[in-house]
């Protein structure tokens, strides 16, 4: 079967195609709510040229933020837009991935984890600069950018 290999962190049992299909089911509804076309939260500087070693730290931070901030506060909208099934599929899979990620806490890894943290902070800062509801909608609509990046670690 296929698995994610985020550097040293290996995650089995996730079918990426199912995550995509869940996202595509709601993409038009969600992205249509975001009419700010000149702001992208998951910018190139966040996700491009991420080293294997960094990837486990970065995906861990991003998924944690998506689960604890975005999914948590977007659920009401998901009910309103009738996309709860897709919403749950993505949330549950993200929980499973998170549970299997064990980024190393060893001191020698600090420079790498610090790099990943800087990337994550770029994303978080951009998120905080927007109105709360606008930021939630935009982040939720950018999950295809996140999935596209995750796919590069899917083997």
């Amino acid at each position: 079967g296929q698995e994610f290999q985020f550097g040293p962190c290996r995650v089995e049992g996730i079918v990426l195609q199912e995550l995509w299909e869940a996202f595509w089911d709601m993409k038009d509804v969600v992205q249509a709510q975001d009419n700010i076309t000149n702001v992208r939260l998951l910018r190139k500087e966040v996700l491009q040229n991420v080293s294997e070693a960094e990837s486990c730290y970065l995906i861990h931070s991003l998924l944690k933020f998506y689960l604890n901030t975005i999914f948590k506060n977007y659920r009401e909208k998901a009910v309103k837009f009738r996309i709860l099934r897709s919403f749950s599929t993505l949330a549950n899979n993200f929980v499973v991935i998170m549970s299997k990620l064990q980024p190393s806490q060893e001191n020698e890894m600090f420079p790498i984890s610090e790099n990943a943290r800087r990337r994550f902070l770029l994303f978080q800062r951009e998120f905080k600069q927007l109105d709360r509801e606008v930021a939630l909608t935009k982040a939720f609509g950018e999950m295809d950018i996140l999935l596209t990046w995750m796919e590069t670690f899917y083997q």
Partner: peptide, 10 residues
């Protein structure tokens, strides 16, 4: 009129 957000990969 504007398109939806477009990704050629998708």
């Amino acid at each position: 009129k504007m398109t939806d957000r477009f990704s050629s990969l998708q």
